[in-house]
């Protein structure tokens, strides 16, 4: 039995305001610092902001890269530099009730670990943000190991190199040995193969023997 359910399209979501909401009675402080220029292009200044709590408090940059985040109540904050192209490490800034500032590295795992940083803050980029995968460059090895190229090279190898190898007496011996082994292993299959390919294995022998008539006969049969 199928039970239907109304899928009520009411989506309820509430941004519960954090309890440390701006309180007019609380002491307010200004966080100061400077973002060191990540590039020589001056347009980075207007595209960079310093955020606390995802934009609840914002510090905009002046020409020299300095910023002041105004009217921040006492508490602990994670300060982020937002720039579309350059990455900066976030910094945790703590303001105590006496108005003293302390800056340290953000460590979400080891909460008790404190790596102090200088205050007023000096923020330096840790590098350009890499958003994109790099396209694979054309390389000779890529072409060589391309399955299609392999497909072309392998028959070429079989056609051109293998007959030459066969002329070498040692390899020929090895091949014969291999063949005899396969004969032992699967006699029926080899029988079938020999009957199918006719006198093919005898072909090199015939070539060694200076008997033109026999070779003619062999060649005729194989090509036919």
């Amino acid at each position: 039995m199928n039970y239907y359910l109304s899928l009520v399209t009411i989506v309820i979501s509430l941004h519960v305001v954090r309890s440390q909401e701006v309180d007019s009675t609380q002491e307010k402080h200004d966080i100061e610092g400077r973002v060191l220029a990540p590039t020589h292009d001056p347009s980075w200044i207007s595209s960079t902001q310093v955020y606390i709590r995802g934009g609840q408090f914002i510090g905009f940059l002046k020409d020299d890269g300095s910023f002041t985040i105004k009217n921040v109540p006492t508490g602990s904050y994670v300060l982020e530099v937002v720039n579309p192209d350059y990455q900066f490490d976030p910094i945790r800034v703590e303001i105590n009730s006496k108005g003293k500032f302390r800056a340290r590295k953000v460590d979400y795992i080891q909460l008790s670990k404190i790596t102090p940083l200088p205050y007023p803050l000096r923020l330096k980029t840790i590098g350009k943000i890499k958003y994109f995968q790099t396209r694979e460059q054309w390389r000779a090895t890529d072409l060589l190991f391309n399955p299609m190229v392999l497909m072309m090279v392998a028959p070429l190898f079989l056609i051109m190199i293998l007959p030459r190898l066969m002329n070498d007496p040692e390899t020929r011996k090895e091949m014969e040995q291999l063949q005899s082994m396969t004969k032992l292993d699967v006699p029926e299959m080899s029988e079938m193969l020999t009957s199918y390919f006719g006198g093919a294995p005898k072909k090199p022998k015939a070539a060694v023997k200076p008997k033109p008539s026999a070779s003619k006969l062999q060649a005729g049969s194989s090509s036919g």
């Binding site: 347009s43 200044i45 207007s46 905009f60 020409d63 002041t68 105004k70």
Partner: peptide, 13 residues
């Protein structure tokens, strides 16, 4: 604000 590029010239409370 600087009207040319939107950078901050001054800010105070």
């Amino acid at each position: 604000w600087n009207p040319n590029d939107g950078s901050l010239l001054a800010g105070w409370t």
